[in-house]
Amino acid sequence: MSRAARVIVAAFAALAVAMVVSLSAQPGAGRFATVDLYVASDMPVAAWQVELTETGGAMQIVGIERGDDATFRDPPFYDRVVLERAQTDRIVLASFSLSAADRLPRGRVRIARLHVRTTGTAQPDYEARLVAAGAADGSPIGARLTVETQPER
């Protein structure tokens, strides 16, 4: 094989390798996950307000969904302007229902789901605070808030 031919062949080989590597690497591809907010209360919950903070700087919300109970406003209230203007590390969600007490959720119920996308290697770190929870008559009630994230598949 002549020297010129060897050079050409080597170039092809390098190109092949580079293309295979670039196709598999996909730099910048995001990962998707869900963040579920649960409220647990002995009393029927008619209204709730939650503040969620992400301290890792990796959260990008790509969808907002109400919880399991169909009587609540769909979707929950949130600050659209800030959320759509820039990446944010904080969101306040709230919703209410005018259903009668016997039709409201009791016990542990999912109140909202966020669909998020993260990029880079940082793992998101969530903190949630229950700002307010209320009963059907409008009186405040005690409740516990938990956050569950579905691992990225």
């Binding site: 919300i61 790509v62 969808g63 969904e65 109400r66 979707p75 659209r80 959320l83 759509e84 996308r117």
Partner: peptide, 24 residues
């Protein structure tokens, strides 16, 4: 029965998010 409220983004970023999701 599920409703997912979408978000508004700059066009190119929204496209990236969509293509990422679609590819996965």
């Amino acid at each position: 029965e599920r409703k997912i409220r979408g978000i508004l983004r700059e066009k190119e970023e929204a496209q990236r998010i969509y293509e990422d999701a679609r590819a996965q």
